[in-house]
């Protein structure tokens, strides 16, 4: 549990950080809260020669509203997210999810940007960002680009983020007014990754579901947008057969690993159970 040696950089601006990332290429890693990277370094599964600490870059921090979009700076901590009135009034599902991540000590340090950018399928925010249709703003030497969360994840720890690029902010469109929401997570203990988890946003109109979005955490090597499952709900009264169809569609796209949380079959079923429970709670919350 002793990391290899590395050089430490602490830029004050995004441009400086991007320049350092460009300069050192794949030998460099950006570090924010460090809750994923530092354990990997201690296990010597990661051995970056240059650590670029984003902690002093004020521009990367904070939560704001930009028209119909909520903008979350990459190094905003989970604790700041939880305490944010902007998030509480516009995207309470983010708070419900963040409260299920690790423990208070980690949430004071762990960042939203780190959680989404690392590409760990166990992280909770990536599926939620897919469910909400968020975009990630990435900045590199050649400028800035935006990648949808739904297109960002390629495989475990492989993402659209290229060497030399930095995730600077997350842009989340405001969900339709009156949307019900829920994030259901089954875990073994505080601090554990999900055995399975499901994020649900849905809207009711005249007793029928007029909008639904569903994504799943940690039941594949990327977060999974369950588009067919959502389609199975839209137009229905969220009756048992529609929910059964959604659950079946969601389970069908899972491909979890067998691990200490349980064999693959169990984790697939738990994705279904979590989805069923999330739909029920979201339905109750829908206006």
């Amino acid at each position: 549990m002793i990391p290899g040696s590395f050089d430490y950089h602490r830029p004050k601006t995004v441009d400086e950080a991007v320049a350092l990332l460009g300069q050192y290429g794949e030998e460099a890693r950006a570090i924010a809260g460090g809750h994923s990277l530092i354990p990997m370094m201690k296990l010597r599964l990661a051995a970056p020669e240059h650590l670029i600490d984003l902690g002093k870059i004020e521009a990367l921090r904070g939560i704001s509203r930009d028209g119909d979009t909520i903008v979350i700076g990459a190094t905003t901590t989970q604790a700041e997210l939880i305490a944010s009135p902007v998030i509480a009034s516009n995207l309470p599902i983010l708070i419900e999810t963040a409260m299920l991540i690790a423990d208070p000590q980690i949430r004071y340090v762990g960042t939203v940007g780190g959680n989404v950018a690392n590409g760990d399928p166990g992280n909770d925010m990536p599926a939620l960002m897919q469910c909400l249709g968020a975009d990630y703003v990435l900045k590199g030497a050649s400028g800035e680009r935006s990648v949808a969360a739904r297109d960002f994840y390629e495989a475990a720890y492989f993402t659209a983020l290229e060497d030399g690029e930095l995730l600077t902010s997350i842009r989340i469109p405001l969900p339709p007014a009156g949307c019900g929401w829920a994030y259901e997570k089954l875990k073994r203990k505080v601090g554990d990754y999900a055995t399975a988890a499901a994020a649900v946003m849905l809207k009711l109109h005249g007793g029928a579901c007029s909008f639904a979005s569903i994504a799943l955490t940690n039941v594949g090597d990327t977060p999974l947008l369950a588009a067919e499952a959502a389609e199975a709900l839209v137009g229905s009264s969220l009756d048992k057969s529609a929910i059964d169809a959604a659950v079946a569609a969601a389970e069908a796209i899972t491909n979890p690993a067998s691990d200490g949380r349980g064999p693959a079959e169990y984790r697939t079923r738990m994705a279904g159970v979590m989805l069923r429970r999330a739909i029920a709670r979201a339905k109750n919350r829908a206006a």
Partner: peptide
């Protein structure tokens, strides 16, 4: 849940507190 588990190859699969169940005050 607390277990020192080995896979069929003899690899120990619960050698950190991520996988070895040490309950917190919450559990």
């Amino acid at each position: 849940g607390q277990e020192i588990a080995y896979d069929d190859m003899g690899n120990v699969t619960t050698a950190s507190l991520m996988d070895f169940f040490l309950p917190t005050a919450v559990e």
